[in-house]
Amino acid sequence: MQGVVKVNSALNMRSGPGSNYGVIGTLRNNDKVEIIKEVDGWYEIRFNGKVGYASKSYITIVN
């Protein structure tokens, strides 16, 4: 499943599904990501070869 990031500035990509996990990357508005699965309001995603987590509130699913 594919998604597009929708933010005003930047979205942190984290090592786990929560804001208490470390930041491993930064996503920008309109970045395209691969959604692997949903975990407690977060998406596990793949972006630029990295796998991490981002809040699903800021990612819109596209077909």
Rank of each mutant, 00 (worst) to 15 (best):
I35G: 01
G3T: 03
D40A: 07
L11A: 13
V4F: 05
I45R: 00
M1T: 14
E38V: 07
M13K: 01
T26L: 10
S55Q: 14
E38F: 06
N63P: 13
Y58R: 07
P17H: 02
Y43C: 03
I59M: 04
K6C: 07
A10T: 10
S57F: 08
Q2M: 15
G3D: 02
N48V: 09
I59W: 02
A10C: 06
V5W: 00
N63G: 13
I59A: 02
T26W: 08
A10E: 14
T60G: 10
R46E: 15
I36G: 04
K50M: 14
N48W: 11
V62G: 09
N12R: 08
G25H: 10
T60W: 11
R28L: 15
G3K: 03
S57E: 14
S9L: 12
E44G: 05
E34N: 04
N20R: 10
I24K: 04
W42P: 00
V4W: 03
G25D: 12
K37W: 07
D40C: 05
N20L: 07
V51P: 07
L27M: 10
N63D: 13
K32P: 14
R14L: 15
K56H: 07
K37L: 12
T60F: 15
N12M: 08
Q2S: 13
K56M: 11
V4L: 10
I59S: 01
S19G: 10
I24A: 06
I45A: 02
V23G: 04
N63I: 11
I59T: 02
K56G: 08
G49W: 05
M1C: 05
A10P: 15
K32Q: 15
G22H: 13
N29R: 06
S19L: 14
G41H: 07
N30F: 09
G41E: 11
T26D: 07
T26R: 09
E34W: 05
N8E: 15
Q2L: 12
Q2N: 12
V4D: 03
I36W: 04
V33P: 03
M13Q: 03
N8W: 06
N30M: 11
A10M: 13
R46F: 15
G3L: 03
G18M: 02
N8S: 10
K37C: 05
K32Y: 15
V33C: 04
K56C: 04
G52S: 04
V23K: 08
R28P: 03
D31I: 04
F47E: 03
I36H: 06
A10N: 11
F47H: 15
V33E: 00
K32T: 15
R14S: 06
T60Q: 11
I45V: 12
I59C: 02
N20V: 06
L27E: 00
G49V: 06
E44P: 00
L27P: 02
I24H: 03
V39I: 14
N63R: 04
T26A: 08
P17K: 02
G49T: 10
I45C: 04
G22F: 10
N63Y: 02
I45G: 00
V5F: 00
M13A: 08
V39P: 00
G52D: 00
E44F: 07
N8H: 14
G18D: 07
L11E: 11
L11V: 13
A54Q: 03
S9Q: 15
R46Q: 15
I61D: 05
